[in-house]
Design a protein around this nucleic acid. Structure first.
Length: 491
RNA sequence: GGGGCCGUAGGGUAGUGGUAUCCUCGCUGCCUUGGGUGCAGUGGACCUGAGUUCGACUCUCAGCGGCCCCA
């Protein structure tokens, strides 16, 4: 009967069986279901899962709008001739593009790509809209889904053939302008992770061989997952002038000279939800920071038949007061479930804070608050409940962030030679920081042996191996090192 | 890209060439609460297709789907 005892909740071990555990949390917490038969790699995002995406959207969209971005929407289909105009993009995405060849009963003259990304349909319009330097910088963003027909295995939110994301596209007068834009968006992504999702990240750039097709520089925020793999949390590209040249994004400068613009693009997908779920959740189920939780507080009344009325009345008062303060609160007054059942259910669903109200609380004009992440229970005065709850939100957030930060700090290890790199990655996972000569072959060697790659290289300003005299040699080949590389297995 | 494991009601399990079982699942009624297990009744499945067979959930093949390991 042990299986029966556990069947309502999570049965898989987070540390030993992370994949199954993750799938179980996603399903049992009501975040997503698998797609229909014949459509492996697609998921149905259920309301509680979609609410998480909306929280991310709300946070980011406000930041974007505060920094000069306007939202727009471009077609889901891209004519093949458009896609072909930037050759690196064609080559980069070719194996993953889904094509439409028929409309109604008619064969199409030109097949249409289901967008794998929209540079090639947005850029031509930006080219039309930009005439003079006065039109720059131009920034458009769209919230949409894209399709990448990956052959590799899929995992809800982490890797799905269709995924929701946001893609921003900008054009600038100068290279510096484009660079500043690239970094501004990366800062905003970092802030999304650290201030909204409670996940500390490493920031830097991708090695040259792993940049976005056609891009000059690809930047990334990397988050560590509990199984020791790294996930690219968001990305921001300095595209240089290659797209502007391919799509004729030109403008007249102050001297009436025709010049080619510099462009950027940047995006974050619902993969950030995968990182969110995987980072904080535990073997009781989903754990969410109050910043994104669809239900932030649940009030559970606990009564005996003679106290029922007063307990409920008190609980309703508390609920109403929290609602008035703009807090997302649910009063769980179902009478066919006992409190223990409700506790477990709300824990499974990731409600960050629970308020227990029974006759004792009513008599003492108090509340019992319980933090989801660690079960800490605190008795507080009934007065100023909204303020008290907000304070506990901050505490819960801090607990989540601190735990994730500790994990990350402990997972960055240094290694100076090949054996140490392989040994450390094999034994501990996480990140291995090593001097690197810059040659892609050195990465390939590690990749072959242990399937880890360079997920991040610190920015030039943060990398002490640049521009200074040092004796460091590449951890793989022993040639003089030019950069610091972070190796990790990745999603 | 290569290899392995797996697919049985909402969930969890078994098992057999002759249609299971458990549940904290659904529904109805009764019961009423400080960490999921009250009582009674009732409902519902063998991933899809082809083959073998008197008969396939079971055996074979293919497909679809899921998970894991390696590249």
């Amino acid at each position: 009967m042990t299986d029966d005892e556990q069947e309502l909740g999570i049965t898989e071990s987070k540390s030993h069986n992370t994949g199954d555990w993750y799938a179980e949390v996603v399903r049992k917490a009501g975040l997503a279901s698998y797609g229909p038969e014949g459509m492996s790699g697609f998921i149905v995002t259920r309301p509680r899962g979609y609410a998480l995406w909306e929280a991310v959207q709300n946070a980011l969209d406000a930041e974007f709008k505060d920094t000069g971005v306007q939202n727009a929407y471009f077609p889901v289909f891209i004519p093949e001739s458009y896609l072909e105009r930037e050759k690196d993009v064609v080559e980069g995405f070719d194996p993953e593009v889904a094509w439409v060849t028929q409309g109604g009963h008619e064969e199409l003259d030109e097949r249409l790509a289901v967008r794998p990304t929209s540079e090639s349909i947005i850029a031509p319009y930006i080219a039309q809209w930009v005439r003079s330097h006065r039109d720059l910088p131009m920034r458009v963003n769209q919230w949409c889904s894209v399709v990448r027909w990956e052959a590799t295995e899929t995992k809800p939110f982490f890797r799905t053939k269709e995924f929701l994301w946001q893609e921003g596209h900008t054009a600038h007068e100068t290279d510096e302008g484009a660079w500043e834009e690239t970094m501004l968006r990366l800062d905003q992504y970092e802030s999304l992770y650290e201030d909204v999702l409670a996940i500390p990240v490493l920031r830097g750039q991708k090695p040259p061989h792993d940049t976005f097709p056609g891009a000059k520089t690809t930047t990334t925020v990397e988050a560590l997952m509990p199984d020791g793999k790294s996930v690219q949390g968001a990305t921001s590209h300095h595209l240089g002038q290659s797209f502007a040249e391919a799509f004729d994004i030109t403008f007249s400068d102050e001297q009436e000279e025709e010049r080619v613009a510099h462009t950027t693009s940047w995006g974050v997908s619902w993969r950030c939800l995968g990182a969110l779920i995987m980072t904080h959740s535990d073997e009781q189920g989903l754990v969410l920071p109050p910043t994104v939780a669809p239900t932030q507080v649940v009030v559970v009344p606990i009564w005996q038949s003679d106290t029922r009325e007063e307990v409920l009345e008190y609980a309703e008062g508390v609920t109403a007061e929290l609602e008035d303060a703009g807090i997302s609160v649910e009063l769980d007054d179902r009478d066919e479930r006992n409190p223990g059942f409700k506790f477990n259910e709300h824990e499974l669903n990731g409600v960050p804070l629970r308020i227990e109200i029974g006759p004792n609380e009513v008599d003492d004009e108090e509340l019992t608050l319980v933090h989801r992440p660690d079960g800490e229970s605190v008795v507080e005065d009934r007065d100023d409940v909204a303020e008290t709850v907000e304070r506990h939100f901050d505490e819960v957030y801090a607990k989540l962030y601190a735990a994730a930060e500790e994990t990350l700090d402990g997972a960055v290890r240094e290694a100076d030679d090949r054996a140490e790199i392989l040994g450390t990655l094999g034994r501990h996972g996480g990140y291995v920081e090593t001097p690197w000569c810059g040659d892609v072959d050195c990465e390939a060697e590690i990749k072959e042996q242990i399937a880890a790659e360079i997920v991040m290289v610190p920015f030039e300003d943060d990398d002490e191996l640049i521009g200074t005299d040092h004796e460091e040699t590449c951890g793989v080949c022993g040639e003089p090192a030019e950069r610091t590389a972070y190796f990790a297995k990745s999603y």
